[in-house]
Write a protein that binds this DNA or RNA. Sequence first.
RNA 1: AGGCCCAUAGCUCAGUUGGUUAGAGCGCUACGUUGACAUCGUAGAGGUCAGCGGUUCAAGUCCGCUUGGGCCUACCA
Length: 796
Amino acid sequence: MSGTSTETAAINSISKEEMDKRFDPAGYEQVWQRRWAEKGYFKAEAPSAKPSYCIMIPPPNVTGKLHVGHALQSSIQDLLTRWRRMQGFNALWLPGTDHAGIATQLMVERQLATEGTSRRELGRELFLDRMWQWTEQYHGNIREQLDLLGASCDWTRERFTLDAGLSRAVREAFVRLYREGLITRGEYMVNWSPKLGTAVSDLEVEAKTVQGKLYYVAYAVEGSDERIVVATTRPETMVGDTAVALHPEDERYTHLHGKAAVLPLVGRRLPFVADTAVDRELGTGLVKITPFHDPNDFEMGKRHDLPGITVIGLDGRMTAEAGPGFAGLDRFEAREKIVERLRDEGYLIKIEPHTHNVGHSQRSGEPIEPIVSTQWFCDVRSMADQALAVVRDGRVRLIPDSWDKTWEHWLTTIKPWCISRQLWWGHQIPAWYTEDGRCIVAHSLEEAIAEAGTDRLTQDPDVLDTWFSSGLWPFSTLGWPDDTQDLRTFYPTDVLVTAFDIIFFWVARMVMDGLHFMGDVPFRAVHLTGLVRDAEGQKMSKTKGNVMDPTELISEYGADALRFTLASLDSPGRDIPLNRDQIAGYRAFGNKLWNATRFALSRIPAEARVRETIDPEGLAAPERWILSRLSRVAAEVDARFETFRFDEACNRLYHFFWGDFCDWYIELSKPALSGEAPRPRVGDVLLTVLDRALRLLHPVMPFLTEELWQRLPGHEAIHSETICLAPYPRREEGWEDDVAEAGMEALTQVVTRVRALRTEMGLPPKAKLDLHLNAADSGTGRLLQEQSALIQFLTR
RNA sequence: AGGCCCAUAGCUCAGUUGGUUAGAGCGCUACGUUGACAUCGUAGAGGUCAGCGGUUCAAGUCCGCUUGGGCCUACCA
């Protein structure tokens, strides 16, 4: 509690002291963040008489560090939450973190390696202890960083995907899907990552175009002198061949039907099989079939009832089945060795360069090995159909909707999802095996024992894919499977804000799970943001060294400037080039807010106050005009927030404040405030417009607006404690005044024209001139006449 | 191989359902500092809206093609 006394001093200083000429975000940002938290302004209610508004944070990696992409998404989520909260909604932004299975386990494994040990050496239990230690050590970082950004999360509802409640939800979901027959265990071909030692899903495989080789190998035809030639990119798999395929209508090879080839080096008999999947144009039109090491061959093997042989093991090395001379070799060494033997024995016809796509492990970067193994699968077909339906009928809106087609394509072609991982960090699969090999799926060991009739059970060692638990996030975080008050209050949630790159990993699965388990969509809209890039539009990456750290940007420019920048760059369907000049520009905007407030506070009459509302009756044209403009901007900003056009909303706020308010209204108020040319209620109007402008800006720039708003005399009339809970300004139709706007338009044009003439004629800015105006019509003439003092003031 | 997106000022981008003279920020030029703000003010320069064709009274905007970028999906040995 060492910081308490200084904090109190800082809080006391707010709104009392003379304002500095320059604003300093570091001086108040975290003071306010702490105070808001202490006051509990962001705690949502359940139940509540107010309408609910809910956003679930896309949970970042619990041990991770927030990057600018997180800063972007968090800024948008906070903007929406603060906006709705001010509008009187019972707003919940639920924070939390993800255990991020492979990623986090790898970090700890790397650390163990530096200590000269490994997870295998430690054993599962000790290793998991280390994982939890690691998790606890870094867990606070995410909150710290969100606090720096000004996030208005409800931390009393924070969740972690591995906490007790969410783990229970995971087991419940697994058991239900198993009992519905949608989760099954079986031996299939999976994407295997030898380095990671685990199966991964199709999504975790990245196709990379590589320069490979196409090897042409001669196979003898059984019972004849004929030799046929097959082409392959992976000669090392040939020792696992069990057939040779040809196209049924390929006239070159009709004589081979019913015959067999002989596998070089091994001597195995390989029947010819006819299959239309064979491409006659490619290679020689004859394909070697290795059912256990190629996804196509696996399918073909099933169609023709071919046996499979596992010649590459889970460690990426050749098995004993590969035969003497190859067993134990790494798969790529084996390739060289086998090609060498083929050449030596005269089977190698030729080698051609060949460009093709090879699946690589997204996480480890190595080529994926298609391997047959026993895994758990989730058949998502029926769930996918439901997810298709809700996007088609608009119950879930993707924003921008250009993603609809991608959604459609992926979900219509979706295949069973391999959900088991050979890792330790994650939700262990709730399946137990009896000694006689029965498999019991249950919520708990106790339930499994009861069902099995024995306590001699072994739990399946595998854990679930991280995304299995993430898919449940919108309702597991609210207490599901129990029927909780939170669940009833906040589900379905309103908006999901996330980057497009996890639309399949996560968004689609939440929609499927939400519909399946809750019978309703998890959110009504998905705002998909672009990728944050550097100033040159390059992807940020550690290797390029162009990564921008949000924490550092905040300390340099302030959180409000970063937030404003990110929000104003968030145009639909576009990536976001972030450059420091722009952030600096919005920091200058902050300075503008600061100094406009400073001006108002130093010049208004003592009795001036922020008013809840103002009757324009009896006000002069400049006052009528600024109130009219304010009303229109409030309406526009509201409409833009509704449609997720944060860029346009920010733009309008920026131009209203800097252009209308500072460049014109403040200038116009000067002669009135100084007493040279008094006008009615100028002080009240100035403060009231400032109050509303700050409130309009609050969702984007929470810290500065609070800091300034607290200083406005009479702000308590709007809310007794904080701008965070003050009402969001709406349109005031009674303020909208076409006559005043037209009149001011004429005035500003006159002023601008005079200034331009002065420059064109090379007249010194201070030289006083005579100005004669001829109005085109009497109305304008009268107005300009009325405002002649102002015109003189602005044009000298 | 399919699909999606993009091309507008020196740079990064807006530009709604087609409708006056295409906008902003940064950068640039000139001038300006004792009274909110130099993180500023005033004025200004700068665009064949990638190219070609079409629809229309009217196209940056709609349609087709071309070129040049980017991304996603995909089992071609």
